[in-house]
Design a protein around this nucleic acid. Sequence first.
DNA 1: GCCTGGCACTCTGTGCGTTCGAGTGCCAGC
DNA 2: GCTGGCACTCGAACGCACAGAGTGCCAGGC
Lengths: 338, 338
Amino acid sequence: MLSERRLEVLRAIVQDYVGTEEPVGSKALTERHSLGVSPATVRNDMAVLEDEGFIAQPHTSAGRIPTDKGYRLFVDKLAGVKPLSSPERRAIQNFLDGAVDLDDVVGRTVRLLAQLTRQVAVVQYPSLTRSTVRHVELLSLAPARLMLVLITDTGRVEQRMIDCPAPFGDMSLADLRARLNSRVVGRRFADVPRLVQDLPESFEAEDRGTVSTVLSVLLDTLVEETEERLIIGGTSNLTRFGHDFPVMIRPVLEALEEQVVLLKLLGEATDSGMTVRIGHENAHEGLNSTSVVAVGYGSGDEAVAKLGVVGPTRMDYPGTMGAVRAVARYVGQILAES
Amino acid sequence: MLSERRLEVLRAIVQDYVGTEEPVGSKALTERHSLGVSPATVRNDMAVLEDEGFIAQPHTSAGRIPTDKGYRLFVDKLAGVKPLSSPERRAIQNFLDGAVDLDDVVGRTVRLLAQLTRQVAVVQYPSLTRSTVRHVELLSLAPARLMLVLITDTGRVEQRMIDCPAPFGDMSLADLRARLNSRVVGRRFADVPRLVQDLPESFEAEDRGTVSTVLSVLLDTLVEETEERLIIGGTSNLTRFGHDFPVMIRPVLEALEEQVVLLKLLGEATDSGMTVRIGHENAHEGLNSTSVVAVGYGSGDEAVAKLGVVGPTRMDYPGTMGAVRAVARYVGQILAES
DNA sequence: GCCTGGCACTCTGTGCGTTCGAGTGCCAGC
DNA sequence: GCTGGCACTCGAACGCACAGAGTGCCAGGC
């Protein structure tokens, strides 16, 4: 186990490196932090930390920089989550309160997060797996052509065209609409298939085909809706990556364009609490020199989706974690209110 | 007026520079193109072209590179639009044909365009100013709470919550829904305000407040819907900007994040035909070293929106223009079919 | 046993002078 | 008006020396 002072040295190295972006040496460390020991002692500690794999030298006779493992230790043991200042909190609240609909909430959130952390922000749309149906509407557009509109309690609306196998009377339509709604309104998506299963049987033979068609479209829509969408913002913050950003930025931009990659990235975050994935802990190769800070957010007690930021491994973890957590909280509040 | 040969020299310079990304000298030019004259002659021509501002030297004793003005002349007079190969055309069609809804069409288009041109693609959603209303639905969620759902002929659906000033009976609701639809279905957005203007008067006094509220929400929604949205893709192609990309990329990424800037950018493109804006011709400062190739597309004869690409001024104009034009055509076809 | 000051060593980054080569401008001649 | 020749310029590349930061190690002190 590392002694208290060695941990302190690691903390100091991380902090200085994050600040200056330059390898940090023993002398500079003792000058900037009151460790109470001489550079020589720090050098010995550094040698140990290097043996253990927490720090590394870019080349002999340069200072040390933290390794992924070093950042990991820093995040797990040495750093807390830095709470935001109260002006910051107020700014968040004001900014998010202005949102008019779900798209706007998500859009504002991503911009806010990017601005606060000065990194690339990723926000997943609230997932619908735990959503409930608020209303199902059926409209007749033509004798054998219907439109299905699904409204969820998170405020999303989805519509589908339906070509019916046979013309469908207005009475039957109203009937189906009423029965459908009485069964599924307020129910979770996952429960809907079970609840509508026997609906066709209660209709006249001539209408059964259409009813079945409508139901299958509805079920398809539910499945499709549960697919997760996300948006990103603040890509211009990639230029903050540091002096080696020209080589780093390419794979990162490519990874960010792949929604699948990002969804997996957020998906890997554990459901409760904040997840920090550092450098090579990220499965995707292009993100090997980035860290991802993600957290779930939701309207109630359950997390319905995730949001987070992607930045260089050399990032201000306490500050970033604080911002991510705070934004997630406020977004949850906003969603709960609406 | 420049002589035929001088124009030929300019064309050769543009082509070589676009290919090699290096300033091109007189000797190299005569070797790679059969101009039929000696390097010395070419040098004289180059001196003239430089006097006229079509080319420039990065420093004395380097080759020449085209200026914005040089590219402009090249695009206007010297270069055609390079048609795509038939495999390319087939690929476009296959790719776009797989789209299932409007979002999907736009998403596929932006990816396609980015891939074909290897540049940043920008696609504007079909504008709704010329759209018509397909259906307006009103749902009662609570005694004094309604939901308005607007369905357009381009397949977009928009919903709004409405808090009514007074409870609104089911009969009144059905009545309002019927009258509203009979007036606006099939009409253009722009005509709706006029068509519904006198609706409140025909209702009982107690319902008028609610009817007015509903109408104002409807009109708001129409206005908001006509606001233009767009999506971009292929940002990782920014890394192709060349050796000076680290300094260039920042303002470009920033500009790309501002939807307003991009909308203005596309908006500047003339309605008919393809528009090419080169370097400083772009009003936005961050895009002073990029060129924008944009064209309108639409489901019928009218252009309903625009799409295009953003790339370095040093781009393959004929190829890019060909790809942009082809994609716009196919998207138009797809939209017309659906 | 741990910390410290001292010292030799090893790198990188920087400044400087030199060389090399591509490219130019100009001129005289055809 | 085109061409070949020629002197000139300037940046890129290279080698080299030097300063500075940082290290590892060791002997000595608390």
